[in-house]
Design a protein around this nucleic acid. Structure first.
Lengths: 195, 195
DNA sequence: CCGTCTTGTAAGTACCCGCTTGCATCCCCG
DNA sequence: CGGGGATGCAAGCGGGTACTTACAAGACGG
């Protein structure tokens, strides 16, 4: 808590999420951390190294929700998973948006967003595996490709979490309700039953 | 073409899309426009005014694809619309990502992304209207809410267009194929027929 | 041919940037 | 209690920022 290194890492992540790489000046990070600017350079050597360490930690604390190994109640299980995913993404929306906007110009400080091991690829793998299990047990149609199907649901959840606060008039229903509706439509497209 | 004002507007949009507000320095914009930096200030008064004018124009040239007033072949019509939407979004991905990352800190220069009249709200309205027409003609299920349904498809297309180049290993199929698969799943969830 | 209007050039303003140095201060461990 | 390591403070470095001023050169219409 009072460890300067810790406070710098926290302040750096917060300010970077709000202001981006150029906007997150060392003076400002140090001030908001309640630490002298010189300590920042003594601890991390450079602004870039600080940001890299800070974003690596921030990226690691976005955790992918889990899905049961063998499906039993798809509607409930996927709905719970989807809501949890939305909440994770929405909680980090500023950071994610800033990273996406700057990954082209600052690829070196990025927490390896798309690499295996990151939260989104883990989530994608989990949903793909879940759909395949449904297919193997005969509950999901075999003519759907799990990859694009998972991208459909995840993409909708991602887009909702990223843009709902920026253009609220695009969304007529509250987030939870909308996400569960995404899941309903997704399952109707994927499951065999036609009721 | 050789009009300095025009070249400044074009260079400003391009550099802003790559570098963001703070990265788009007046020197760099003027240099890349082949114009003296002083001319920039004489023409626009300030960097902020130039960026505002430039982004307003850039935002207006993202045009929303159209959908027939009365549906006849939903699979083909929605597929064509979805591919056109994806291409529009993908063509402007850098600009859109930068804007989304900076709209919190620079809301005043943003081309009013979510307001009525912008491309995405127009696209959403068009798809909602199309789904309602399908419902009224008995071809779409009445128990689906057109708003969330449209958000599902548009969100997936948006997320795909924004993140496919950043994390290609998340997408197993090429873009066109994936988008048409989104549409297939979307229509299977929305249409009444169960084949 | 003159006057205005636009642009280019050169220089300079005040400020902020990342980063460094020198020195005083403090705390903790031996 | 004494010494080393982490921290704070004050100042400064070279360079970049948005923006300004003063002046010369060319275009274009009356």
């Amino acid at each position: 808590m009072t460890d300067p290194r810790e406070r710098l890492l926290e302040a750096a992540a917060r300010i970077y999420a709000e202001q981006g790489f150029l906007g997150a000046t060392t003076r400002r990070i140090a001030t908001e951390a309640g630490v002298n600017e010189v300590t920042l350079f003594r601890q991390f050597g450079s602004k870039e190294a600080l940001l890299r360490a800070s974003l690596e930690r921030a990226g690691a604390e976005i955790l992918s929700p889990g899905l049961p190994e063998s499906p039993s109640d798809p509607a409930a299980e996927v709905a719970r998973w989807a809501v949890a995913l939305w909440e994770q993404l929405a909680a980090h929306r500023s950071m994610i948006r800033t990273c996406m906007g700057e990954i082209e110009t600052h690829p070196e400080i990025m927490p390896t967003c798309g690499s295996p091991g990151s939260a989104n690829t883990a989530a994608k793998r989990a949903l793909c595996h879940y759909v395949k299990s449904l297919q193997e047990s005969g509950r999901a149609r075999r003519d759907v490709d799990p990859g694009p199907a998972a991208s459909l649901l995840m993409g909708a959840i991602f887009a909702d979490a990223m843009s709902r606060d920026l253009m609220p008039e695009m969304y007529s229903r509250p987030a939870r309700q909308t996400v569960t509706e995404y899941v309903r439509l997704f399952l109707r497209a994927v499951l065999v039953e036609c009721a």
